[in-house]
């Protein structure tokens, strides 16, 4: 996985501007785009806002989910790619 300066995760600036609601409704105040995430997506998003690197994010999620590092890494990559598309990063 690449680090934060790579293209895997959305930029920290983009992530911090997102309005994240408990319901899973996400609004990007700059682009006006909105989308919804499930509980797991919400969890990943919250961690994305605080994690400094993909490795740190995977480690954080590993503590909460009973899945292998590889599985979590794959899900994070997939989720991050969708997120980048939604927020136009």
């Amino acid at each position: 996985m690449q680090d934060e300066s790579g293209s895997v995760l959305p930029s920290s600036q983009s992530l911090h501007r997102l309005a994240i609601s408990e319901s899973g409704f996400i609004f990007d105040p700059t682009s006006g785009h909105h989308f919804t995430v499930n509980e797991t997506g919400l969890d990943i998003l919250r961690h994305l806002q605080t994690a400094h690197s993909p490795a740190e994010l995977v480690a954080l999620l590993q503590r909460e989910y009973s899945a292998s590092e590889k599985e979590i890494e794959r899900d994070v990559l997939e989720f991050a790619a969708m997120l980048r598309k939604f927020i136009g990063d």
């Binding site: 105040p29 700059t30 682009s31 006006g32 785009h33």
Partner: peptide
């Protein structure tokens, strides 16, 4: 500022959302 969310046949905003960019 506003992003158009839905438009009429003539391209006029039918719905929009305020943004700040």
């Amino acid at each position: 500022m506003m992003k158009k969310m839905a438009v009429t046949d003539k391209g006029k905003a039918w719905s929009g959302v305020s943004i700040f960019d």
